[in-house]
Design a protein around this nucleic acid. Structure first.
Lengths: 230, 230
DNA sequence: ATAGTTAAGTGTTTAAAACACACTTTTTTT
DNA sequence: AAAAAAAGTGTGTTTTAAACACTTAACTAT
């Protein structure tokens, strides 16, 4: 009836791979890196690395993201652990996928320095190594579920944004068109936005009012959850 | 800019721990095992084991569940990977939690033979080793979310069941009281139940009609999802 | 100056779903 | 024959979702 004793033979390498979502110009994007070591050197890949003995997975994800992008204080969440036996042909590795949400407009300068990384539109991202495309799908499904059950946007939009941007973000995540009036009515019913005096003049002559999130109310809604259905 | 090369030093043991939910006599239950090896020998623990080199995590979960309970063909799903550095004081291990759903009434005979395992009411389960209580919470949250977004019950109830049992299951999972009429109306609107001629006489003089799931329609609903809100 | 263009902004009506709510039936027990 | 215990059944009200179109503001081109 003994099920297990610690058996050093079965030790494996644990990888962390990051699905980094961003949003810019009405498009959902994903940050990829050109892999510079074997196997699959030169191909596009998620940003990843290995868990070290002295850290937990959340810390590893933060470290790996920081190391490859210079970014700090980024929202990250564990998605799923992938373990197909031959997923990495070079060595038995298991990989824990994390997704990150980034406001590209704010962070782009830090990122541009970093050489072999690149933002792709999610829709025309290249084929990735190993099982990374499956990871992206799974993370995307998670992001979609999150958008339906809690407010989203704080991590992906600049501090000030227009209603149109917010709507386009939801449309990109949910992959659907939404009615302008219904969207605004619905979102206002959550009571987490603050309307500013300022206008954004970049996309129309008339200008569109800027909004920001009421951080406290936003957080409360993230805790409590809601049902976004529109 | 190199982020990682394979480093054997960082290999870890990957455990799989199973949160096994069952339902009997209007109560949600969880299957625990008295641990028979160090550390923490003699304490109650989730059923667990270690991933082997030649299998993926889903397979490991199935194997471990089978090995400790004799059960086969049980619904299982990965929940989350736990990685606190000192979660197991004896050795650096990472553990992937899986939850399983079992119809106790049908499987109890197979289980009773197995000695050091025991069904506890979820509400008065003992303190568990390591971070197993956190795992149970996380699995419970997942089960709750599942119950709100897809039909549940096929895996937890006997083949034939009464409306009352089904309602009690939902009440136990969602930890709330539901209105009998609204529950039945709602559930019937999903059109996944088949009403049988037979009655269950065990809990009333009048007897209560038995139902079973229409497997095909049930599966379709699991795929498509729905919004249970009552 | 005037007509045309472009995006912003704004409410109402209809349909569907959620919710609250109470009495009757069946059968056994005393 | 009355009491008890669980099963079974429907309606009205409220809330939420969904469909839908015109006006405003500011610039551009003639």
């Amino acid at each position: 009836m003994i099920l297990s004793t610690y058996n050093k033979e079965d030790k494996v390498l644990l990888a962390v791979d990051c699905i980094i979502f961003g949003f810019l110009k009405d498009e959902l994007k994903i940050l990829l890196v050109k892999r510079d070591f074997e196997p699959e050197k030169g191909k596009w890949s998620l940003i990843g690395g290995f868990l070290k003995k002295i850290e937990n997975l959340d810390k590893a994800a933060i470290r790996i993201l920081h190391h490859l992008t210079g970014l700090n204080n980024i929202y990250m969440e564990q998605v799923y652990t992938f373990s197909k036996v031959d997923r990495d042909p070079a060595e038995r590795t298991i990989s824990v996928a994390y997704y990150a949400l980034i406001d590209i407009a704010t962070h782009d300068k830090e990122l541009l320095k970093q050489n072999p990384i690149h933002w792709f539109n999610l829709k025309d991202a290249p084929k990735l190594i190993f099982d990374h495309n499956r990871m992206v799908e799974k993370a995307m499904a998670r992001l979609r579920r999150r958008a339906l059950s809690k407010p989203i946007g704080f991590e992906l939009l600049p501090e000030k944004f227009t209603m149109r941007q917010l709507q386009k973000l939801y449309e990109a995540i949910l992959d659907t068109k939404l009615d302008k009036r219904n969207f605004i009515n619905k979102f206002n019913s959550f009571d987490i936005l603050i309307k500013l005096e300022e206008k954004d003049m970049s996309s129309s002559k008339k200008g569109a009012y800027l909004f920001k999130f009421d951080q406290e109310k936003y957080n409360r809604k993230v805790e409590d959850g809601f049902n976004f259905k529109i």
